[in-house]
Design a protein around this nucleic acid. Sequence first.
DNA 1: GACCAGGCACATC
DNA 2: GATGTGCATGGT
Length: 226
Amino acid sequence: MNRISNAYESLLEAFGPQDWWPSESTFETAVGAVLTQATAWTNAERAISRLREAGALRPGTLFRLEPARLRDLITPAGFSVRKAETLLGLAALAEGSEAGWSDLVSLGERDLLASLRSVRGIGPETADAIALYAAGHATFVVDAYTRRFAERHALAREGAEYDELKRLFEESLPRDARLYGEYHALLVALGKRHCRKVPLCEGCPLAEDLPIHEGLPPCGGTSAFK
DNA sequence: GACCAGGCACATC
DNA sequence: GATGTGCATGGT
């Protein structure tokens, strides 16, 4: 055991299983990963519902939408010009594969990540989220909450690179996609529900597991307490 | 009305 | 390479 796996147990006990990613298909998961970039999940959900009503939660139908129509459908999720381009790029990947989307999600981890990263608007976090939650690869997703958590609790150096943080978690935990998915979701829960309005980390479920680096902001929020 | 939310690409120094 | 900025909407 180590501090990172101990923290997982405490978070799970405090918040319960998060059962991410909520979706009806792997393509919907990927669409959601793009739509929720720097956006509250409730807004991304609205956009997903609109896509569903339009029958556009399949790569083929989404790919054939007029860009303006797509932008309109995803408006609630914000950044609609960029996100529409990205969703079309994602659907184009599937259109370019022999067996479409199912072909793509069955690629090996490296090939899938490379394909996803070739789409403008899909960066490291979004690619990892799709590889993990849609394709079931054991790849740890690092987001702003993860960084805050790792820095605040002195698990990583300040300003660590994305890959450095990813490696830290992967090397501290058994290689297990389900575990990675739950951990990432729990860190989001920690950031959203717990610390955001409690700058001193009072009552934090991690207080007994981990030291606090007092000079740094608490793990709640992504940009609060700068 | 300010601040924030499950990032990313690009410009500039 | 580090740091800053635009992208857009809806909740608090």
